[in-house]
Amino acid sequence: TGIVNVSSSLNVRSSASTSSKVIGSLSGNTKVTIVGEEGAFYKIEYKGSHGYVAKEYI
């Protein structure tokens, strides 16, 4: 489990790349469930599926 550490919002992406499609966003202080790691990204549970967020903001 981690907490989103941004002042505005954090993009949730379809894969572990900054060039991948943005599938949603999370507000600061949102609790997320981390299910894996891939490079500079965490794989998280997101809306019944999975998404990826940059580690530096969790």
Rank of each mutant, 00 (worst) to 15 (best):
T1G: 07
S19E: 13
I58N: 02
K31V: 15
K55S: 05
G28W: 11
A54Y: 14
N29K: 11
S27L: 13
V12C: 02
V4L: 07
A16G: 06
E56G: 07
V53T: 02
G28N: 15
T30M: 09
K31L: 14
L26K: 01
G2M: 07
I44V: 07
S15A: 14
A54E: 15
S20E: 03
S8M: 11
I34A: 01
V12T: 01
T18L: 15
S7L: 10
R13P: 00
S25M: 15
V32K: 00
L10W: 03
T1F: 09
V6D: 06
I34H: 00
S9E: 12
S20T: 04
A54D: 11
H50W: 15
Y52T: 00
S9P: 11
K43G: 02
S25N: 11
T1M: 14
S14T: 08
S15N: 09
G51D: 00
N29E: 08
Y52H: 02
S14W: 08
R13H: 15
L26M: 06
V53C: 04
G51R: 02
V6R: 09
H50L: 11
G24L: 04
G48I: 03
F41R: 00
F41V: 02
I34W: 05
T18P: 15
S14G: 08
Y52C: 03
T18C: 15
S7K: 14
S25K: 14
I3Q: 08
N29W: 14
T1C: 14
T33K: 12
S7W: 06
A54T: 07
H50K: 05
A54S: 11
N29R: 12
A16W: 04
K21N: 13
S19H: 13
V53Q: 00
V35Q: 06
S20V: 03
L10N: 03
T30W: 07
S7C: 14
G36Y: 04
F41T: 02
E38C: 10
V12N: 00
I23C: 05
S17P: 01
F41I: 01
Y57V: 05
G36I: 03
N29L: 11
S27G: 11
G36L: 04
Y57K: 08
K21M: 13
K43W: 06
E37Y: 06
I58V: 11
S25C: 12
V6E: 06
K55P: 01
I44A: 00
A40S: 11
V12H: 00
V53L: 04
K21Q: 13
G24E: 02
Y46D: 01
N5S: 11
S8H: 15
L26V: 09
S49C: 09
L26R: 01
E37W: 08
V4W: 03
S15I: 07
V4Q: 04
S15L: 09
S9F: 12
L10C: 13
I3S: 06
G48P: 05
G2C: 09
L10F: 04
S20P: 02
H50D: 06
G48A: 07
I23K: 04
G28H: 15
H50T: 10
I23V: 07
K43D: 03
V6P: 08
V22L: 07
T33G: 04
G28K: 13
V12Y: 01
T1H: 14
G39L: 06
V22D: 04
I34K: 01
S17V: 07
V53A: 04
S8Q: 12
A54N: 10
G28F: 14
E38N: 08
Y42R: 01
G48M: 06
K21V: 12
N5C: 13
G24F: 07
G48Q: 07
K43T: 05
S9V: 10
S17G: 08
K47M: 15
G28R: 14
Y42L: 07
S25V: 15
I34P: 01
H50R: 04
G48C: 08
S27K: 15
N5I: 14
T1P: 09
K55R: 08
T18K: 12
V22R: 05
S17D: 13
V53R: 00
Y46E: 01
I44N: 00
T1W: 10
G39D: 08
S15T: 11
T1Q: 13
K31Y: 13
G24H: 02
T18F: 14
E37R: 05
N11K: 14
K47R: 10
K31I: 15
I34S: 00
N11H: 15
S8I: 11
S19V: 10
S49F: 10
S17F: 06
E37P: 03
E38D: 10
S14E: 15
V12K: 00
S9C: 13
S49R: 12
T33Y: 10
S19R: 11
I44P: 01
G36N: 06
E37Q: 09
T33N: 11
V53K: 00
A40W: 08
F41S: 03
K43E: 09
H50Y: 15
I58F: 06
S27W: 10
G51P: 00
Y52K: 00
I3K: 08
F41N: 02
S8T: 14
K31D: 05
